[in-house]
Design a protein around this nucleic acid. Structure first.
Length: 151
DNA sequence: GCCAACGTTGGC
DNA sequence: GCCAACGTTGGC
């Protein structure tokens, strides 16, 4: 099983949105970056995913969710009313993908971005590189364990 | 709210 | 295919 990390603004979707409906799968849609989309495509059912809260007061990794449905065409791209609408997409040729995720658990405490910076073993994680904007990224098994060990 | 970093767009 | 301009991300 592969591991991943996704960024989200908690005002849009936070770990608490998963926690309060643990049996409900939540679509991870609206990704509009090609590199991030390519990673979404690689996600498989059962993969675990860190939820990272960005652009907020308490920045960091808040919890874990899991993939319950692999990549499928992101419906928001076809919806003219959606903020994520993309007129270049057609159902025959969708540009963007979504996956569905479900709650696993919150971390015992928030692992802050500060703590991850400079931590040995995380040098390759795009998250901690200055100016990085990738919102979906793979996490190696070693990186995953290093992060969990902090909690 | 600022601004650096980066991805995307579009003119040539 | 280059690259300047622009828009967005995201930490501070």
């Amino acid at each position: 099983m592969a591991k991943w990390l996704v960024k989200t603004e908690p005002s849009e979707c936070s770990i608490n949105d998963f926690a309060k409906a643990p049996d409900k799968s939540i679509p991870w849609d609206g990704v509009r970056n090609y590199q991030a989309r390519n990673f979404l495509r690689e996600m498989a059912v059962g993969d675990e995913v860190f939820i990272y809260h960005s652009s907020c007061k308490r920045i960091g990794i808040a919890g874990i969710v899991k993939v319950v449905r692999g990549a499928y065409p992101d419906p928001t791209q076809f919806d003219p009313a959606s903020a994520y609408h993309d007129s270049r997409s057609t159902p025959a040729q969708p540009r963007w993908q979504a996956v569905d995720m479900k709650f696993v658990h919150k971390l015992p405490r928030l692992v802050q971005l500060d703590e991850l910076k400079g931590l040995p073993g995380l040098e390759g994680l795009p998250l901690i590189r200055r100016g990085n904007r990738l919102s979906v990224m793979p996490v190696s098994e070693d990186e995953w364990q290093i992060i969990l060990r902090l909690t």
